[in-house]
Amino acid sequence: MELTPPPVRRLPLDPAPGRGDADGHRPGAPLDGARRRRAPSSGFATDRMQVEDVSIAYGRKLAVDRVSLPIRQGEVLALIGPSGCGKTTLLRSLNRLTELTSTASFKGSITLDGADITRLEPTALRRRVTMVFQQPNPFPMSVFDNIAYVLREQAARRPKRAALNRRVREVLAHAGLLDEVEHDLRHPALRLSGGQQQRLCIARALAADPEVLLLDEPCSALDPQSTQVIEDLIVKLREQVAVVIVTHNLQQAYRIADYVAFMYLGELVEYGSATQVFGAPREQRTREYVSGAFG
């Protein structure tokens, strides 16, 4: 085992997520080991959401401080930064999940296709902007019912059994899970492996044809193989939905993101294309973070 060069400066570290990085990256080592998995994006990105001067506080504690950025379809946007920098809070505010916390207060504006999201019905907004969480949280039902639940609840009238069957299979295939569960769709979802559970959660989030998909560290509880499957899936999805992913894992951001937003202590420090942020960061803090000097 080779020695890690002494760090330049140590700021409080993120706790290492469970089993370590997807490809065993040592903090401090350069990013060269990480291969960019994605093909270049088509370049036909369209603006879907616009975050404008958004501040979010829990009680008196400011979690997100005057952040502005665009969210585009056709590109993967990665929010990176050390723990507690507000990236998850920002992500949750995109479909108004922050409102479930009674102490949270919100300033600024977020628009979806030009419409202020606070003017939309929360349920309608959350159908268009769905979310996948850090810990896989499939419902305590069968694999089939996990998807069918969403389809049934979101349909205006109860869908026919055959249509439901077809759609569930489509969605599972879309999330790359169908081959593994096809023999037994009645299998309890909670007995799938962690990676399968997370793909089921992604499938569930895709079930209703959302326009924006929010992913909150979707791979942090998973092993490298499952991580790779999910990363491939995310890259594949980017043409159909706008994808925003929060990640601790710089390699992951490097592998899949087209655009990267680096947040630190609630502020948006730097926003730019992945090649620019990782290759030629403009800000000193970004340079230190992506070179592994801290967090």
Partner: peptide
Amino acid sequence: SWLEGSLALGINEWRTFWKI
């Protein structure tokens, strides 16, 4: 996390609480 998962998919509070 189960309730939140359902809310995050745009299913309203009453249905979420009832069905999950």
